[in-house]
Every structure is written in structure tokens, then in C-alpha cells.
Design a protein around this nucleic acid. Sequence first.
DNA 1: CACGAAACGGAATGTCCCTTCCACTTGGAA
DNA 2: TTCCAAGTGGAAGGGACATTCCGTTTCGTG
Lengths: 211, 211
Amino acid sequence: MTDTGPPLRRDAQRNRQLLLRTAYELMATAGLDVSYEDIARAAGTGMGTVYRRFPDRRDLLDALFSEHIDTVIDLAEQASRHDDAWAGLTWFLERQLEIESRSRGLGELLRGRNQATALVRRAHERMTPLVAGLIDRAVRSGQLPAGVTPADFVTVHVMVGSVMDASRDFAPQLWRRALTVALAGLRHADLTGRPPDATVIDRLYNNNHQR
Amino acid sequence: MTDTGPPLRRDAQRNRQLLLRTAYELMATAGLDVSYEDIARAAGTGMGTVYRRFPDRRDLLDALFSEHIDTVIDLAEQASRHDDAWAGLTWFLERQLEIESRSRGLGELLRGRNQATALVRRAHERMTPLVAGLIDRAVRSGQLPAGVTPADFVTVHVMVGSVMDASRDFAPQLWRRALTVALAGLRHADLTGRPPDATVIDRLYNNNHQR
DNA sequence: CACGAAACGGAATGTCCCTTCCACTTGGAA
DNA sequence: TTCCAAGTGGAAGGGACATTCCGTTTCGTG
């Protein structure tokens, strides 16, 4: 699946690492839409080098974030093994958001503020059933009211993330308050209306409409 | 304050109206960042005409949305006169969001997804004390738990709006569910930690960091 | 109805970013 | 040490927008 072709020359190897570090830094504060030119300049290489190594931006994103994404998948798995479903859910979401708060780029990726990469899609495919299972358990055990769906959990993720994005520069902890509110809402809202369509999760996370 | 200079020629008058209608339509679905070229093309005029009439984009935005903004201010005033503070708050927020759901552009303007215009700033200066009064009353009457601040209300507005923006194309009513969750959260969250800085409201609404 | 001011359209210019391309440099195998 | 495939930097071309400018057209007053 990940055919690397012939191994890179040592200097190319070095530059690749340098570019990854540089791009990660830039995207941690500025988000995913950093230009290749900026990355090259910050790394002290030419643009050609960036394009040669990462011809498609998604290649770059996947290389940059794959281990962090694995970490998040791990969190979901740990959470799903939690005895207390609600505790698992809140723990998972808070952890995930903490990670997102340290990297704006990763947050944008995980919350579908862009064109999803294959890696991200696969990550969600893997996490969604786990979350769904937790929600199910929590509803059955009475920790969550009937009517709460996995899509509502995703909605909470999106909501809190938007507060994080909006307030990062002047109130970097405000999202915690928003999370408190949103989670309390999940436990107390009357969501007995028609549940959201099943495809909503996918569309929220694999947002096409950029901009 | 609004010196209009010498009156416009009749054809210019007509074009101005045409441009406003056209721009409003475009921004209702595509948001505020429609290019002047697109507006001109859709209206069947040249770009020069758009620039002549609205040399600064803010001029255009204020002209486009001023009456809608007045409507929202009106809602806030009506709400603040409501006997039941909580009912006033929820009614106001739902109405405002309904209006935003009909115009993506207006939503972006009201929720600070851009560089705020003088008009928007004034609108928020006017509405903020009204909302603060309602929150205060609701807390005092026990409808909201102690610790809830006006900034939390704004946060809810931002959160629900983000869901609206993210789901507009495939689930145009999903924001109502998010609103239900968020409002329930406000009533049930334990927000006894240090309250957000007073400037948070302003910064959320007059967002500088565009994208 | 003539004529000057107002308005008009859209070509031209500048900026920013994406992407390709190629003449030059360099690593490392022979 | 030689040599060439691999690697490099940045110029160049292209597209999207913002903004300006000016030759032409249109209004509406005298």
C-alpha cells in the first residue's frame, strides 16, 4: 500500500524530514492552508523540493499527521473499552480536542474543514463505529437520554472545535467551557425529533465545501 | 453621518439596486467572499460599476445587510422585554439563527467570520447589554445556573452557527438540533470555573483572524 | 436637441498562489 | 576519482481576484 519506491538519497532524506518539521510547525498555528512557498522559505529550500517530495498536498498532510491520527484512533479504542460509556465518551472527546488545540492543522483535518485525505477517511471509518457503540451503551444505560445519536456527538465535536478556532488567539481555553456546555446539553437535551440522516457524520467530517 | 452627496442619476440608481439584489442573492448561498467580478457578471454590469458605487467592500456589506441587522437588533429588544428571561433568550437566539439560515452572508457577518463593519460593531454594542441583562435575570431567577455569563451565550451562538455552516448543503435543519443541545447545556452545565474575560464577546464577534 | 457631467464596461495591471520545468549541483556506487 | 542518477532552486507560465483607468455611452438640463 505504501510503496516507497527506491530509497531516498541521504540529503533528500534530510530535507524531507526538515520539510515535515517545518510544515508541521507552520500548520500548527496557521492551519492547513499554508502555501508551499511559505513552507519552502521557512525550511530554507526551494519550492521544487517540496513538490518533488509531496506532489499532492494530501501526500504532505498524510505524512504530517498520520501518527497523530493514529494516536486519536487509539484514544477511541481505549475509550470504547471503558466500562462507563459516558466517561469513555467525554474522556475521548476531551483528549481529542486537547490534541487539536495543540495543532490547528490537525483540528482542521479531523473536523473536515477541508478535502479529506484517504487517511482521515479511514480514521473516521474506524472511529465512527466505536463512538456509535459508546453512544448506544450510554443511551441503554440511561447515561444519555433516548434520541441521542452518534451524529449528535459529531456535532458536538464540530461545535466545540469551531469555538476553539474562533478563540485560539485570545482565549485558548475557551473551548473547554464550550465542551462543558455541549456535553451537559447532550445529557439533558430533549432530542426526540426525527434523528439526523445516517450520512450526516460522513458529510460533516468529509466536508467538501471548502473556503 | 450618511452623506450621500449629489443624488444619483436614474440609471445609476437602478444599477445600484440591481447590484444590491444580485449581491444579496449570491451571498445568501455563497457567503460574503463573493468576488466583485461575480457580482458584476451576475448583475450584467461591468466591474467598474460595482467599484464606483461601493469602493470599499464594507460599504457594500453595510448597504446589503443594514436592514436585516436592524431586524435582529429589534429581536434583541423585544426579547429583553420578555417577562420570562430564559424564554426571551431562546426565542431571540432561535429567531436570529433562522434569519442567518436564510442568508449565509448575514450569518458570517453577525458571527464575526470576517472583518466587522462599523454597522455590525454598533449592532453588537447595542445587543450585548440586552443579552447580558437577560442572562443576568435568568441566573437570578434560577432559570440558569450561577456561573453562566453573556460570553457563554455568544459561544453558543458561534457553536450553533458553525454547525449551520458545515451542514447547510446536506442537512439544512441540523442546526436546530445543535441549538437544542447547546441551550440544554447552558441550563445544566456546571460553569463554576473562572468566567471568560469580558473582552471575549467582542473578539468573537469582531474576529480579526480571517483566513 | 445639444452638450457636459455622470455613468458605463471591460481591458490592463498587480498580487498571490499553484504547478511545471530545466540548467545546475551533489551523493555515493563503481 | 569519476560520473550520472538523484536531487535542487527558482524562474516561468497560468488562474483567480482586486483595483485602476480611460475611451465610450447615456442622462437630463438648458
